[in-house]
Design a protein around this nucleic acid. Structure first.
Length: 158
DNA sequence: GCCAACGTTGGC
DNA sequence: GCCAACGTTGGC
């Protein structure tokens, strides 16, 4: 049994939010058009990996909840759909170029753990999303950082 | 809406 | 294979 890995996956909630995932239960994470992010899905993600669901370009910005990887990577058909906003003319069913994984809803946090709160926690030093200019939409997360984030969420006054 | 930082493209 | 120009991301 391989060790569980941890990821952060960004989404603009106007486009796809933690509420959308909760409603659907399981959904495909389509539309990734960055090689590094694609390679993480294709080469490293495994079923059962834990996911921090990050809301970008939002108010507030931060981690909205948890998900779990529910499938291995497989071709992303939106890549060869001309009506799709992520259409890639070089992609086809024979040469998919882009892939996606299925992601399963686990939990929505009572409140978003904001980017600002995370910046204020020295224990999260090194967390990729906190790095300036970090645009990667799928990022590996260290276990210690994942645990610290959960701790911050659980310890919050309610 | 601004713009810094980044990834990609394409001329040479 | 370099690198300038361009397009995109995403926090502010």
């Amino acid at each position: 049994m391989p060790k569980t890995q941890f990821w952060l996956m960004k989404s603009e909630p106007d486009c796809f939010s933690i509420d959308d995932l909760e409603r659907k239960g399981i959904d495909h994470w389509d539309g990734v058009r960055n090689y590094q992010a694609r390679n993480f899905m294709r080469d490293q993600m495994r079923i059962g990996d834990r996911v921090l669901f990050y809301h970008s370009s939002a108010r507030p910005i931060g981690i909205a909840g948890l998900a779990r990887v529910h499938s291995e990577a497989y071709p992303d058909p939106t890549a060869w759909d001309p009506s799709n906003s992520h259409f890639d003319p070089l992609a086809s069913p024979e040469n998919p170029r882009w892939c996606m994984v299925d992601v399963e809803f686990v939990e929505k946090f009572p409140e978003i753990l904001t980017l600002e709160e995370m910046h204020r926690n020295p224990s999260l030093e090194g967390l990729l999303v906190l790095k300036r200019g970090m645009r990667l939409s799928i990022q590996p997360v260290e276990k210690k950082h994942f645990d610290e984030i959960l701790k911050m969420v659980r310890n919050r006054k309610r």
